[in-house]
Write a protein that binds this DNA or RNA. Structure first.
Length: 466
RNA sequence: UCCUCAGUAGCUCAGCUGGUAGAGCGGGUGGCUGUUAACCACCAAGUCGGCGGUUCGAGUCCGUCCUGGGGAGCCA
């Protein structure tokens, strides 16, 4: 008999002879006709499980089937039939049920058939994929990854694998994890007492990357349109529902593109991937809508349907200063917009996604292109309801002399950026890009409150068990 | 890192002003039922986060450490 995944079995014609394999969610018994057991079997290929009907005529009924508990793995041969009960359209009338793996101690099975808190499930991260929520999150993550790659592929972007280990301590995007093979108990020293990194694996200090942007720019200025999508690391001791020590980031970069092109790309990107998600994972999204975050589907549709408004930072500040609404943090030209300001703009004032452009140069990174006014840089933030900033991007400074001034202004060392500066010496062009955190994207489109629940194995301060 | 709340059966929690522990779910057994958040009865299960202190006596009070949640900062 053909092994069918549950997602296909649920749609197969009545009468199909098939085998399904998976894990039992629940077993319910009836005494009718001398005994019938109902097994809810899930293989994770879709949100729903399939019901298996096992009758007492099966030879292992009394010895095995009635002892099956949540978590047991089974292989079932049988026929797909119309369900004689309510609650499902089809079910499998079993001809054979083989138990592949028992549950050692059903009394203490960590993900028993009951409600569990997310906090608890984090402690059993190896078993939580078997729950409705984490199965759905895993499928949504996959779907969104695919959507991102398809979006870029269809638009002639090449996927560039930027390095995980970096010797360039450049970006200043927070604390970095050191990569070293030196013996911590016996560090080689220089005469002045400092650690001698000449003897380290790479012959210099090295760290885990905090961004692939600088590297991907090099390929942008050769392949025209590129993107990275990979893990990034921050050693910040920040313990919140929106931060991880290890997370995934998407960073496209376009040559011969200015800030306006960048904004176009960001808007088209978000609309595409959310539409793809709603189309392809309707089952999981219905679950998130019903059980996790009512309203999440409307928020996504809102982004798909509404045009993104574009305003300057200065205009945004003017709007915020004019409103009667009280904020915890004051609004002043020159300081960064707080989350409450961003949400006010997109949720209450404009009631649509907003792209804020041209921020004061003091609050933005050195590589962002200086505008003619001398006060602002060509940066953009895409603001959406519920979370505020979802994307941050900029046009990069392509003029070597201006870039050098900015590096010096920020107190950085020109030599550290020698290869980055070379890009401005050899065939420089205007180029732009943006970045977004993949897990925050998944949080947004599932409504999951804690970022540790949208990545399979979260890494956070004091948390790397699995 | 700071502020704040919490840590009691496998899980979620209750336990008033200190007198040596209880419920629901889950699990087991039996009854009933084409079951599906099933229902009814019974049973098992906890050195009350660790260490120290106050007290005749601490789950309950004090100190400290560990762990987790929420918020802040930082940011993606």
């Amino acid at each position: 008999m053909e092994w069918m995944k549950v997602k296909d079995a649920l749609k197969a014609p009545i009468g199909t002879q098939l085998t399904v394999k998976g894990w039992v969610r629940t077993r319910r018994d009836s005494k009718a006709d001398g005994g019938i057991s109902f097994l809810a079997v899930s293989d994770g290929t879709c949100f729903d499980h399939i019901q298996v009907v096992a009758k007492n005529t099966l030879d292992n009924y009394p010895d095995e089937i009635v002892k099956i508990t949540s978590g047991c793995s089974v292989e079932v041969d049988g026929e797909l039939v119309e369900s004689a009960g309510r609650g499902q359209d089809v079910e499998i009338l079993a001809g054979a049920v083989r138990v592949a793996g028992w549950v050692d101690n059903p009394d203490s099975y960590p993900v028993s058939a009951k409600r569990h808190s997310f906090e608890y499930l984090r402690e059993v991260a190896h078993l939580r994929p078997r729950t409705n929520t984490f199965g759905a999150v895993a499928r949504v993550r996959h779907c969104m990854s695919l959507a991102i790659h398809r979006f870029f592929d269809q638009r002639d972007f090449y996927y560039v694998h930027t390095p995980i280990i970096t010797g360039a301590d450049c970006e200043g995007a927070g604390e970095m994890f050191r990569v070293s093979t030196l013996d911590l108990q016996n560090l080689p020293r220089k005469p002045d007492g400092r650690v001698n990194f000449d003897q380290d694996f790479f012959g210099k200090e090295s760290h885990l990357t905090v961004s692939g942007q600088l590297n991907v720019e090099t390929f942008c200025l050769a392949l025209t349109r590129v993107y990275t999508f990979g893990p990034t690391f921050r050693a910040e001791n920040s313990n919140t529902s929106r931060h991880l020590s290890e997370f995934w980031m998407i960073e496209p970069e376009i040559a011969f593109g200015d800030l306006s092109d960048d904004a176009d790309l960001a808007e088209e990107f978000l609309k595409y991937i959310f539409d793809y998600l709603l189309t392809r994972r309707a089952d999981d999204m219905a679950f998130f809508e019903k059980r996790i975050d009512p309203g999440v589907i409307d928020r996504l549709k809102h982004i798909i349907e509404k045009p993104f408004l574009r305003i300057s930072y200065s205009e945004a500040v003017a709007v915020l200063k004019k409103t009667k609404r009280k904020f915890e943090f004051p609004v002043e030209w020159g300081s960064d917009l707080q989350s409450e300001h961003e949400r006010f703009l997109t949720e209450e004032h404009f009631k649509q996604p907003v792209i804020v452009m041209d921020y004061p140069k003091e609050i933005k990174a050195f590589y962002m292109r200086k505008n003619d006014d001398g006060k602002t840089v060509a940066a953009l933030d895409v603001l959406v309801p519920k979370i505020g900033e979802i994307i941050g991007g900029s046009q990069r400074e392509e003029r070597l002399d201006v870039l050098d001034d900015r590096i010096r202004e920020m107190g950085l060392n020109l030599d550290d950026y020698w290869w980055y500066r070379d890009l401005r010496r050899y065939g420089t062009v205007p180029h732009s890009g943006f970045g977004l955190g993949f897990e925050r994207l998944i949080q947004f489109c599932t409504g999951m409150a804690n970022i540790r629940d949208v990545i399979p194995f979260p890494r956070a301060p004091r948390q790397a068990e699995f």
